[in-house]
Nucleic acid binder design. Sequence first.
DNA 1: CCCGGAACCTGAAGGC
DNA 2: TGCCTTCAGGTTCCGG
Length: 269
Amino acid sequence: MPELPEVETIKNELIPHVAGRLIIGVVVDDDRLVRPYSIGEFCHKLLGQRVTRLSRRGKYLMFHLSSSNVLIAHLRMTGSLVINSTGDEAHTRAVLQLDNGDQLAFVDRRRLGVMWLAKNEDEVAAKLGAEPLTAEFTAEVLAKKLQCRQAPIKAVLLDQAVVAGIGNMYADEALFAARIHPLKKAGDLPSREIEKLYKVIVNVLQSAIENKGASVDTYKRPSGEQGTAHYEFNVAHRRGETCHVCGTAIERIAIRNRGSYFCPNCQKL
DNA sequence: CCCGGAACCTGAAGGC
DNA sequence: TGCCTTCAGGTTCCGG
């Protein structure tokens, strides 16, 4: 699933193909993909625009346009952005043709992904919590977001208004790295553990970016290549396998209907 | 505001 | 071989 490290990788690898380019063709064949306009209006407003730069906020990818509008993409569960796919790519929902000959395809098996045209990026950025790899994210900021919350820490970490960009995999990985049980009440964490959690969130995300994201399920980079971050997972998607630290079998429980993987020995309630 | 669950969506996987 | 159910999880919406 595309979380912050995956979207960051996609952004970085799209920049050489897309930044500064003119959009000379737009094809959309799924009316649920685009907002807030009809397919026709959406294509019309995009055609002839130049992509001045790309940016990312949380799991949102922004294409800044010469009209000063922003094309915002969210890949949700199974979306991917592919440069120059061979044409037989299944589940292609939209294709942008660029003036350098490159084609950018939005591919999404489960059709939950969205692209929309916004006046500016604040339309999504405003409701998000701190951006974890910037100076605005500190242990104090995290502590403030966690205090008084009665929900399990795992559920709170998935709240994009707490920290932007953390999803199911990296929440599990961060909680393991901090040795915190996913069901522990967020508001009960002592400041020492919040400090630790803050540090490992940054480390886990940075290291996953260095590995170009985790290719579990359908994630792939714009080139079609896979990321390698999942090879370093300690708990995510490792039910029944042994803990790298203590050898105990990794367990999976459901929290808010999300699979949560943890080591019952390293992460005690 | 906070919390938990359902809905959205489709392909894979497992049970019988 | 095939039908059916369950599972995957990012976001949004809704009821308590």
